[in-house]
Nucleic acid binder design. Structure first.
Lengths: 223, 223
DNA sequence: ACAATAAATGAATGACGTTCATTTATAGAC
DNA sequence: GTCTATAAATGAACGTCATTCATTTATTGT
């Protein structure tokens, strides 16, 4: 009579019988996994503490024995999400290429977790070892190419700002820039918009690649 | 017995006597002004519909006769905030300089309204004439310098992404990048951080200027 | 005077995140 | 083996929000 299937979509977990540490079922890992499941299946608006508890087969208040707040859960999710960022190129391929891979994967990952951006952008990074290791990899990449130490952090932050902004932009509706009825008053912009559309490429992707090229050229010199 | 001073911090407004349009007191302009007042005095977390109503000397539900949602109020605030962006340089000073002024003012404005960024970044721009006029000014600036039409929109979007990302970054605590106890495991990054700090300049500002320079160089060529 | 109507009200609702007193059941001490 | 400290789960409750709605109020055009 343990762990009934529940015939329900929620993660099945051996019914917790309270007690000392032992076989913890409601630890940081399980909570994070459940949160990621909800997010990927139903999106961030569905990630409530009640939904999370339900997914874990537990009452909402039980979560507060293991996480001090929803903010903390979001930090755990962020820490996991960072594993999708590719920092392996530094020291392996030319810096420009390594930065490009890094930036693309970073943007793609956060485009799928856009609601984390305002959280992450303002959160002390000391709590996220993965993020710190990423910074170290990028810093090594720049340092090895002879960058002056005092320029390294600003360069990383500038790239990151562009990446976060681009990730937000990637979640915008395709027609977000449509001028609607005002088109006639904006001849140049409206024309440019049509010209861009005629290329058939996604505006967010094109903008990201153009901006990334420009940043890399500006930082490293022409290719 | 009209408009008692209230001896209270709230905006004094001639007590509304219901009826036909006439001398509307609770219109878009007044609501926007009140919202801006709350935000500048007590920040975005304090901007609740209840606080807004209180500021206007009215009950919360009354707001819904004039705004369909809080989202709409935020759009009004955004539209007003956009007036702080300086697009006057285009056609008046060299393009690089015009873009620089524009980008700086744009970032500064949204650094003070960071919570609007996730809203704005995803909102159809058709509802914001001021934003559209800004786009037109920038597009004219690029077009006049011979930019191909299909590159204009991506360039604007790329710059805007960098600007929004930088505005978010500008609201972060100064020590956000502090590696804490992990410093020893991150020699290059920790060193770079110290070198940056030693310059005495704000990391967010330095990163913004470095990134902006890089973007402009990448887009327009070396100065 | 009257009818139509814009506008304000206050009570109510439904999400949320979070707290707390209480209960449950295990692990280690004796 | 019992006892006891304690990690962990529970359900009820709270406070804060945005939002809705039936009702009232007061003005305008006829």
């Amino acid at each position: 009579m343990s762990a009934p299937p529940m015939a329900d979509g929620r993660t099945i977990v051996p019914r917790r019988r309270a007690g000392r540490p032992s076989n913890a079922v409601l630890d940081r890992t399980h909570i994070t996994t459940a949160a990621l499941g909800i997010v990927s299946e139903r999106g961030y608006p569905a990630l409530t503490m009640a939904a999370l508890a339900r997914q874990l087969g537990v009452s909402p208040s039980a979560l507060y024995n293991h996480a001090s707040s929803k903010q903390e859960v979001l930090q755990w999710v962020q820490e996991h999400v960072m594993s999708g960022v590719d920092s392996t190129g530094f020291g392996q391929v030319p810096l420009r290429e390594a930065l490009r891979r890094w930036a693309r994967s970073y943007r793609d990952v956060f485009a799928e977790h856009a609601p984390l951006i305002p959280v992450v952008a303002v959160l002390p990074v000391a709590g996220s070892p993965r993020t710190l290791r990423m910074y170290e990899a990028v810093a090594e990449g720049l340092s090895t190419e002879g960058w002056h130490p005092e320029r390294i952090v600003p360069a990383i932050v500038a790239l990151e700002s562009f990446i976060f902004g681009s990730a937000l932009d990637a979640t915008a509706p395709l027609d977000i820039l449509d001028p609607g009825q005002h088109a006639s008053a904006l001849p140049v912009f409206a024309g440019a918009l049509q010209a861009q559309r005629a290329t058939g490429a996604g505006p967010a992707d094109t903008a990201f690649e153009l901006g990334l090229d420009a940043l890399l050229t500006g930082m490293l010199g022409p290719a």
